[in-house]
Design a protein around this nucleic acid. Structure first.
Lengths: 187, 187
DNA sequence: GTGATTATTTATCATTTGTTAAAGGATTCG
DNA sequence: CGAATCCTTTAACAAATGATAAATAATCAC
């Protein structure tokens, strides 16, 4: 869990008591490539931090598998639209490699907000940063071509080795065939 | 400011002291149709609540005016990617009708977080809700056609009377010509 | 390792969207 | 009111993307 606490410190320093309280509600989870971490229809009550590996949030639209996002080691991952509303999520989380997570129990976390203002603030900052990422993603989706966004994605090291193109295509909002064409032009 | 405080109460009850502290950092702003409320290149240090009227956040991409979002009476509006990072925003806010805002001084607001945990929590909840909206917007952009999204937009009453089609087109991520075609088919 | 399955590319054709230009409406301002 | 400006629609053509199918490449399971 060292990595997670290092991640926390990047947002703000925490007193030992808050750290101890956080540690109590965290646990480590290991999954094999292809496994699902969370399923459709459940309400999201866990926030994950990726120690190693890759995960994606995805769902089915008209029977087609659509990837909403990818997350890598050092990222926080949660189905926010369920976590913050209490509504069941229509999305699932799957790992694309053997992956090691820290699972943070969100129910217990939110309860800690009352007794530990530091923890409330820490997660406020974490989710504000997530909010900003999401606003930037909208710009990127709406006003850059799929080709530009593909090139931007490639900046992530080893991305092509780690993630099947079909998931990249649905993440980009285009068909596999279109992505193949984009790749063909670049060669 | 009554409307704004009613809006706050929807998120959580506030004690009189917090309400008084909030009131001190709020002021009312009136703008005429077409005026800009905030300009490109400035860092966002104000959060607005719309009492009456319509506003849009927009920017220029390759010289073309792009609308990122519309906000109506009862909505909070802020350029989040600047507010939470301190980076200058490349976006501006413009009103599309004579509009009355409450301006909340964000620098003073964030300072109140230390002395008033209630206020920190209130705005945490407000921005969590904004975060959820933004995640839903991504789904909508990426996986619904412009036509579907146009129809969804029309559910907003009087939208067509209040907002020029050219702004609606850029908000939908399509050209004015495409939007005209969609509208022609529907008749 | 081998066969079966899955992933990726390529080709062809249909559909959608963009670009440009022109024309008709609506609105604004003196 | 009338001219000028801005908004919206329409048309014709070009470019990009989707759908389908078939071929090739890579991966998985026994």
């Amino acid at each position: 869990m060292t990595e997670l606490f290092r991640y926390f410190q990047k947002f703000m320093p925490l007193n030992p008591e808050s750290l101890a309280a956080l540690e109590k509600i965290c646990s480590v989870v290991h999954l094999k490539k292809g496994d699902n971490l969370q399923y459709f229809g459940q309400t999201c009550r866990t926030i994950y931090f990726i120690n190693s590996g890759v995960a994606r949030i995805y769902y089915y639209k008209d029977g087609v598998d659509i990837t909403e996002s990818f997350s890598f080691e050092g990222d926080i991952i949660a189905r926010v639209e369920s976590l913050f509303t209490g509504n069941p999520s229509q999305k699932a989380i799957q790992v694309l490699e053997d992956t090691c997570f820290v699972a943070i129990n969100a129910v217990q976390l939110f309860a800690l907000y009352d007794s530990h203002p530091q923890i409330e603030r820490l997660f406020r900052l974490i989710f504000e940063a997530g909010y900003v990422e999401t606003v930037k993603r909208i710009e990127s989706i709406q006003f850059h071509t799929a080709e530009d966004r593909y090139e931007a994605l490639l900046l992530k090291p080893n991305l092509l080795q780690r993630i099947p193109l079909k998931h990249i295509a649905s993440y980009l909002g285009i068909t596999q065939v279109s992505l193949s064409r984009i790749r063909a032009i670049q060669r």
